[in-house]
Simulated scan of single mutants.
Amino acid sequence: MARIVIAPDSFKGTIAAADVAAALAEGWASVRPDDEIVARPMADGGEGTLAAFAEAVEGAVRVPVRVTGPTGFAVDASWLRLPATEDAPGGTGVVELASTSGIELLGDARRPWEASTVGFGQAIAAALTAGVSQLILGIGSSASTDGGVGLLTALGARFTDAYDTSIAPGASGLDDVVKVDLSRLRPLPERGVQVLCDVTNPLLGGRGAAAVFGPQKGLDEAGVARADAGLARLVEVLKGLGGDTVASSLARVADPEAPGAGAAGGAGYGLLVWGAEIVPGAVRVADLTGLAAAIEGADLVITGEGSYDGQSAAGKAPAHVAALADAAGARVAIVAGRIAADTSAVAHALSLTELAGSADAAIGDPATHLRAAGAALAAAF
C-alpha cells in the first residue's frame, strides 16, 4: 500500500483546488483502491484560499457574510474562522478577496473604473468584530485597481475630494482624491495581519498594478496611464499626512515599491498602509495547513494548476509543494490544464489538454479529465 498526497492549486476560473484533488483521488482509487490518499488542496492567496484552509484545518468554520461586490450589488460570501490556539486565543480569521471583490464575480462584464475592494474590507471588518486574534488575507483575483481605497474605507478610512466629498468607488475616484483621514481606521488584531501574495510587483510604473494587471480588467493603454497616475496621486496624498497618530505614521512608511504592493490592483499597498505584512502565499498556506507533515512518508505527491509554466516554477504553489516533496524524499507528479515548462525534474507530468484532445475539451469538463489523469498516474505508478 502506497501513501499518496494530492496537493494541487485551483485551475483558475475552471475548477477549485478541492475539486481538483477530489477528482484526482477518485481516478487514482479506481486503479489502486488500497492506497492511502491524503488530500491537501493548495492556494497562494487567490481563488480557493478559503477552501484550502477549510479542507486542511480541523474545526475550521465558515462564517456567512453579505458584502458589497465589485459591481456595487450585494454578494453572499463567507470568511473562515480557524480554531483558537495559544498564539491566537480568539482564533484566526481567513478572508479571501476573490470571493468578495474578485474578478470572477463580474461575469463577462469588466468594470475597470467602478469596481472596488470595499466588499473585501467589509468581510475583514466582520472578522474583526467577531474578535479574531489574527487575520490571514488572500488577495489574488481582484476585479479593481483602486489601490486598496475601498477596503480601507470599509475599515474606517475616509478619502475625499476638493469639496470634502467622498470620492467615487474604484479607480475613477483616484482622479479626485486630495485628502485622507485615517483617524478612525480600525486597529489591527493583536496578533497582526498577514497578506498572502504570489506576486512581487510594486504599486507604480511599468511593473506596477495598472501596467501589469490593468489590461486583464479592461484597461486600454490610455486607461493604464490614467490609473497609474491615480495611484501615484494616492501615494502623494498619503505621504502628506501630518500629525503623530499611529495611522498617519503607517501611511508614511508604507512603501509603494515594496514587493507585493501592486498585487490585486494595489490592494497590497492599501493593506501595507493599514500595517499588514505581505508574505509568500503558498509558503504560508502550506505552513498553516501542515502540508510538510502530511508529505512525510509519502511515496508520491501530486500537484499542479491550470497552466504550469515559467511562473509556476518561480514560486507559485506547485513549486513549493514540489520542494517539500523533494525534501521528504517523495516523488512528484504534475497535472495541469496545460504544460509549458520543463518537467524533467519530476517523475510524471500530465496535461489535461493532451488527455482531452484540446484545450476547449479540457476546460469544458475538467473533472472528467482529472479523474482520467489520476487513473493514468496510478497505472504508471
Rank of each mutant, 00 (worst) to 15 (best):
D176S: 15
A375T: 03
Q122A: 13
S30Q: 12
D299A: 14
S10F: 14
V346K: 00
V321A: 02
A25I: 07
F11L: 11
G281R: 04
A286E: 02
G93T: 03
P366S: 11
A16V: 12
G93F: 10
L128A: 11
A367S: 14
T289M: 01
A313T: 15
A251N: 06
L352E: 07
A356Q: 03
I136F: 10
S248M: 06
D244L: 15
A376I: 02
A84H: 12
P187T: 01
D360K: 12
V193Y: 05
G192R: 03
A359H: 13
A60K: 06
G270N: 01
V253C: 11
V118C: 00
G192C: 00
R338Q: 15
P64W: 12
R191K: 15
E58V: 13
Q311D: 08
A373P: 08
H348A: 10
A267Y: 02
E296H: 11
A52D: 10
G46A: 01
L238T: 08
G329Q: 04
G170V: 04
T368G: 12
A125N: 12
P256V: 05
I6W: 10
F11Q: 10
T100N: 09
G315W: 03
D342C: 09
L352I: 06
A333W: 11
R111N: 14
A16P: 02
L80K: 10
V20D: 00
L238F: 08
P70E: 06
P189S: 00
R62D: 11
F213E: 09
V67H: 03
A267H: 01
A21V: 09
L219N: 02
R284E: 15
G90R: 05
G148A: 04
R32G: 01
T343W: 02
F11Y: 14
V332S: 07
V224A: 06
H320S: 11
G281Y: 03
L300Q: 08
R40W: 14
V273N: 03
E96G: 04
G147W: 02
G140A: 06
V199Y: 02
G131S: 08
A154Y: 10
S166W: 04
I295Q: 04
T71V: 14
D244A: 15
G223E: 01
A349T: 00
G268C: 09
V94N: 10
H369Y: 15
E277P: 07
A51G: 11
T245L: 07
A84C: 09
A314L: 13
V65W: 04
S144W: 02
G48L: 12
T353E: 15
K217R: 09
L196A: 14
A317H: 14
R284T: 15
A125L: 14
G357D: 11
L185S: 00
S312V: 09
D360E: 15
L128V: 07
V57E: 09
